Amino acid sequence: MRVVVSGGGTGGHIYPALSLIKEIKRNHQDAEILYIGTEQGLEADIVPREGIPFKTIHISGFKRKLSFDNVKTVTRFLVGTRRAKSMIKKFQPDVVIGTGGYVCGPVVFAAAKLKVPTVIHEQNSVPGLTNKFLSKYVDRVAICFEEAKQFFPKEKVVFTGNPRASDVLNIDSEAGRNSLSLNPNKKTVLIVGGSRGARPINDAFLSVIHEWSKKDYQVVYVTGSVHYDAVMEKVKQTSHSDRVIIKPFIHNMPDVLGAIDLIVARAGATTLAEITALGLPSILIPSPYVTNNHQEKNANSLKTNGAAIVLKEQEMSGERLMQEIDRVLTEEGKWQKMHVAAKELGVPSAANQVYQLLRDTAR
């Protein structure tokens, strides 16, 4: 089996692609993979480190407002499509899949024009411009939220879930607990604002840091590397409990997710795939700075089903955050209801479902 995979820009597009590649290799040890990304995106660092053959094209995204930059983008798209066609002709894939990001535009479009079977994978409840455009040309559209179905030709849509969910099936919760020196007899809440952190969440947390010592649960707070020094400087100026563990970043996040009882986080698609696969209750604070406000719509999908509490950033305070955490961890039956609801939304077999879709679509 020969597969071209394209996805880039952010981890939300790259990590599902890597999870899918693992699944392809698990089913076909002799499978040949070519990953096409950009030199500027995170994929240029992450993908080669995984030992996956990697090539690049140059592309940028469209501006939503009228801009001369869009003329440049059209030119780059045409040049990128020609380069992608050359790569695809040489590699001769059985199928091409795009997992999101601008780079998928020319790559998947080139494959479709060459009559190579094509699939796009949409992680969010509201698709971006690239996948909306590509949906007219591809053979299949894989989605993770039922809400996304309305944006695509209905005869092409298949609900698969996010391949990243499958990665949490192999977690070592004890290793996650030990890595943070957590007390196994205490409930644990993880508060994280994404890989780079989120200042509003930092500010809310710090405003009530002295209150955590009164709680009967422990808190792991991940500041994000860029905010860590500033947060720790403020922490030094106040008293706080040893039940509060502060880290700049967590590298073994899947293992840690298996060791906690509640997560406070943004509402990126990868995060939601992981926590629903585990049946982990959540308090979601969607980022208001993303395209189409898709994180809020992702979060509301969990809220509607009773799996999450959603707090808008502008409504959040330290007191409100602590109040909601208390509700989940102390109100009788609350945690269990959210756990069951989250589990019902999870698709732990998502990687295999996307793989099966690829196999059925391939020539």
Rank of each mutant, 00 (worst) to 15 (best):
Q336K: 15
R64G: 15
G318I: 10
P16D: 09
D172N: 12
N292S: 09
N170S: 09
F151Q: 13
V208W: 02
V290F: 03
L311P: 10
S241I: 03
A267S: 12
K234D: 13
R83C: 04
E313F: 00
R359T: 11
I97Q: 04
R243S: 15
M338F: 06
L169W: 06
H294M: 02
F133R: 11
G224D: 06
N178I: 08
A265V: 03
V157W: 02
A148K: 10
A111M: 10
H251Q: 11
T81S: 02
A142Q: 04
F151K: 13
A31Q: 04
V3I: 03
E147C: 01
P153Y: 12
I14V: 10
K154E: 14
S19E: 01
N183P: 07
A350E: 04
A341N: 14
M322V: 08
T38P: 05
N252P: 07
K149H: 13
R243E: 09
I246P: 08
A142N: 01
T304R: 14
R49T: 01
V347N: 08
V4T: 02
T130E: 06
M253Q: 08
N124P: 06
G268T: 01
V256M: 13
E296I: 01
V107L: 10
E43V: 09
I283E: 13
G268C: 02
E324S: 07
V226N: 14
L66S: 12
S60L: 03
E331D: 14
K156L: 05
G258R: 11
I209V: 14
Q40H: 04
P53I: 03
I143C: 13
G194Y: 12
A265I: 00
G306R: 01
A277H: 12
K55W: 01
E122V: 00
P254F: 07
V107M: 11
C104L: 00
P248F: 00
S282R: 13
A175M: 09
E146F: 08
I309R: 09
N131L: 10
V107Q: 13
R26S: 14
P200C: 06
T160Q: 00
I59L: 11
N178R: 15
L180E: 06
M316H: 07
Y289C: 03
E324F: 07
D326V: 05
T291R: 12
A204Q: 12
I59Y: 01
S301M: 01
A269L: 03
F62G: 00
A277K: 12
D45N: 11
F249R: 07
D203K: 14
S135I: 00
E319Q: 13
L358I: 00
L190E: 06
M316C: 11
V235W: 04
F249M: 02
S86M: 05
I285W: 10
I191P: 04
K149N: 13
E344A: 12
L284S: 02
L42K: 08
V310Y: 01
G279H: 09
F133A: 15
N70L: 12
V79D: 11
T118E: 14
V340Y: 02
I120S: 06
G80Q: 08
D326S: 09
